[in-house]
Structure formats: C-alpha cells, structure tokens
Design a protein around this nucleic acid. Sequence first.
RNA 1: CGAGUUGGCCAGACAAUCGCUGCUUUAUCCUCUGCUUUCGGGUAGGGAGAUAAAGGGGAGGAAAGUCCGGGCUCCAACGAGCAGGGUGCCAGGUAACGCCUGGGGGGCGCAAGCCCACGACAAGUGCAGCAGAGAGAAGACCGCCGAUGGCUGGCAACAGCACAGGUAAGGGUGAAAGGGUGCGGUAAGAGCGCACCGGGCGGCUGGUAACAGUUCGCAGCAGGGUAAACUCCACCCGGAGCAAGACCAAAUAGGGUUUCAUAUGGCGUGGCUCGCGUUGAAACCGGGUAGGUUGCUUGAGCCUUAGAGCGAUUUAAGGCCUAGACGAAUGAUUGUCCACGACAAAACCCGGCUUAUCGGCCAACUCAAUAG
RNA 2: GCGGAUGUGGUGGAAUUGGUAGACACGCAGUCUUGAGGGGGCUGUGCCUUAGGGCGUGAGGGUUCAACUCCCUCCAUCCGCA
Length: 118
Amino acid sequence: MVTYEFNRESRLLTPGQFQSVFSKPSRYGSSHFTILITANNTDRNRLGLAVAKKRVKLAVQRNRIKRLVRESFRLKQHDLPGIDIVVMVKSGIDKLDNSEINHQLEKIWRKIIQRQKR
RNA sequence: CGAGUUGGCCAGACAAUCGCUGCUUUAUCCUCUGCUUUCGGGUAGGGAGAUAAAGGGGAGGAAAGUCCGGGCUCCAACGAGCAGGGUGCCAGGUAACGCCUGGGGGGCGCAAGCCCACGACAAGUGCAGCAGAGAGAAGACCGCCGAUGGCUGGCAACAGCACAGGUAAGGGUGAAAGGGUGCGGUAAGAGCGCACCGGGCGGCUGGUAACAGUUCGCAGCAGGGUAAACUCCACCCGGAGCAAGACCAAAUAGGGUUUCAUAUGGCGUGGCUCGCGUUGAAACCGGGUAGGUUGCUUGAGCCUUAGAGCGAUUUAAGGCCUAGACGAAUGAUUGUCCACGACAAAACCCGGCUUAUCGGCCAACUCAAUAG
RNA sequence: GCGGAUGUGGUGGAAUUGGUAGACACGCAGUCUUGAGGGGGCUGUGCCUUAGGGCGUGAGGGUUCAACUCCCUCCAUCCGCA
C-alpha cells in the first residue's frame, strides 16, 4: 500500500545535509524555479526548501510557495529514485497562481524521472 | 429611502478526498526498577520513543513597522553622585507609558463632532542672511515742522531761509519696525491728555487644579519673535536582551607570538566617579566544537452577571482554557452557493501608538426636510 | 527575532552655531586643434518654463521669517548578534 505521507524523514534538516547537495548538484530549472538534486543512496527522497526573503518579500507568499512545493513533492515522491532535492526560487514567482506553479513543478519532476532512468 | 459623525462586531460558507503539527484516551512494540521463577517467562510500578485507531485544537485585526511602555532573564547587589536621555495645560486611570478618560484654553465645522509637542523668552545667554536710516528699553532715508534760538529783509506787525533743532501721523525696506479707534492738543507731532476697546499687576468670587468671571483698585501701556536654540522649572529613566539565560553530552588539549599591567594595577561593567566583588588582561596565529533538552505558554487572560464611577477603569461572584512550531505546522485539489473574498501570517509574552486594508452588520447622535 | 547605520544631479563625494544647495573629481554633450583617431584646450551639464519665475537633498507632514541641517511618521538599502 502506497501512502502519501510527508514527515521529518522526508526533509533536509541540518545545514550539513544542505551542504552535501550544494557541493555536487545536478541542476534543473524552469522560468521561476532552480532545483538541485543529488543521489543519497537510500530508498527515500528528501526535500529541502530555500525561499529567500530577497526573492519573495511577503511572508504570506513565501509560505504559499513552500506549501505548494511540499504538496507537489508529496504526491510525486514514490516516482522519484532516492535523491536529495533542494528547491530554490527566482524573483517574480509570487505573481504566479497555484495552478501555474504546480504545472511548472510537474514538468521538472517528469524531466528528473526520465534522466534518472537512463 | 438622503448627507454625515462616533463607537462596537465580522474577516467567504459548506461538503468530499489526500496531507502537516501539538494534546487526550486506548492498543501493540521498546526500555528501566522491584518481586518471583521450572531460566522460556510471569507480575507490579515508572520512563521516553515508534506505530495504529478514535476524539478534539491549530495565525491576525492589524500577527506588520519596531515608535513607546512593562513583565521575564542575565549582568555579585542595582546603592550614591555626576554626565546623558525622555516627557511637558490640569486632574484622574493604569503594572507602566510618549497611551486612555474627563476638564480647561485655542482652531475648524450649520451641527453631531473633529484637530492641537499647549510649562517658562519679565532668571540669564544666544540667533535673525539679504534688504533697510534703524532689528531691540531702536531709528531721521523721503516726508512734516521750524513754535524757540540763528541768519536775511522790514520802522514794526510780520515774511523768507531750512542753519541749530523738533517730529514716529504718512511713504519706503523687511517675515518682523515697540497697543487700536476717535476726540482734544500742537509749530508739526506724540498715551502728551481724555473716552471706549485690548492687554498688565494686585485684590475678590467660583473651581481640587488648569482656568474663568469681576459694576473693585493701581499704573498710560511694561521690553515683539525663537526654547522641535542653549537653558531654567517639574516629573521619570542602571545596562543588555529569549540569538537573554539554564541544563545534558562532546569539546575547551596545561599550544605559540606580541602588547599592557605588575597591585595607587587589571578585569567584572556597554558613559564616568565612588562603593562592591574578583585576581592577571587583551590581540593575533594554529587546533577543536558549534548536537539535544529547556525557557514555551495560565496570562496585568477571556466571557457573563451585579456593584462603584460622567468616563477611562475598578471590585465581587460564577464559568472557560483559546497555536506553541524550530529548514519552521494551520494546507492542496475538486464541487456547490453568494454580498465573488482586501490588507496581510505567530517565533518569549502582554499594554498602547502608527501604518496597510475588499466589503458587510449593529447601536447612538446630527443636518436637511415632507418633495419623490 | 533582536540591535544598529545610511539615503544629496548619470556616478563617487562636498556643504552643520539653521542663512545663495549641488564644491571637487569622473562621466556625458557641444566645440576647437588633427588628414583621421587618440590626447589636449574651451564651454555646458538637476527638472519645468518664451521670459519672469517655479519645483528639487528617499517620501509625506510639522517647528521656524528661513530646513540637506531640528522634530514626527513612512519607505528603501546595508551591517552585526548563535
């Protein structure tokens, strides 16, 4: 039975874990996202978010974007093959609506899955 | 039904599915201690964690800006003085405030009502560029006069000159030129005199006071502005902040160089001095660690009723528990409905202020008025 | 989260007992020199306006005769604290 849970094991928690992703990343991107991934040699995927105050000024918008990314990751996590992910954003993303953000994330997940299968 | 003022309340709703995070209960697993044992275990109590199920909770009126005030924590204690800072009509409220309430004064509005850093420049010191004659108990540039004295003419009355001089009514300069109006007065003028108005000082009356009134008395008037200039007066303020601080584990390896001091010293201490405590301190190089728990939500708390008070507020009784996260929860998708949803999200906690904001509802009051 | 600092033409940066804002340097534009370029010289350079004049020190108010300067509110940028 496949569950769509999202608890603390599915996140990057410490600065050290973030650093390991930043040190040897594969890059993916879209018009408003930059995503870094690296293999973590487990059967779990882990997500870290880096939404800078400089990119998105209002706390309400930052929270909205983080929630959307988490939700999208939660629903897709079983199709991904054991990687650590750091999602960063670019300026202007706070002007997009929910469906547009979801659409961009979908495209990136599909690209990652294709790349990793080879 | 219109126009407006003040106060208070709400902050899309409902359903389904999938998620996040605390709390409570139950079950299973793990673990510690005691007792017992046929060494498999059994039983009682405790602990923290994991999983599952059920129930219940889960951003704001501004959570914001960080502009004030407190609680709390540490600085041995926060004691004295100086420096520095803040507030500023009066009275009250409060834990406290730069906040609030009531009152006074001034301004705006037909009104309900709204707005105001609103102590003292007659304690002292300073400032006012340019312009202007003169800028502070002032000043003759133009103007006015020239009574008096002088000169000229004339027998004289007097006329002329504008020399001495007088003059702040008028012009001009300026942000500002030293009470206003009228009459008298005069050579021309002038609080020079008088009347009224305004203001000052003293008294009296009302008020806790700010202040107001005065048919009372005094003196012709008194010296303008600026204190968000120094200052004076009254009152208040020790410093830092939850990244405060405390605990557990690890670590800080008794390493090197330089400088200061060597006790009338250094440091604690983040203005200085005294006082107090403590006994070396600081900088750089090299090396090592920066994980977890706690502080963390029950509080100047909220609701109802009754009493005190014009009110802010307060007293009593009863009831309620209403987010505590930590790479950071309170969401996503779909559907239905409508007034089509603004500004915007806690990070130790409260009380205010300020700023942003789609709209909706309720109450009291004011104006316009009886037309549709 | 807490604490602190700064804001002046296109750029750096002057101007303080409150008294003519934009010194100085760079850049830019025009012009002279040169066959041309470079270099150098000279002139101009915040905005609006025909002129007179008006508006301009991050924004908005206030005090004052007068504000870059003093006071209040807001905005933006930067720095420090484990």
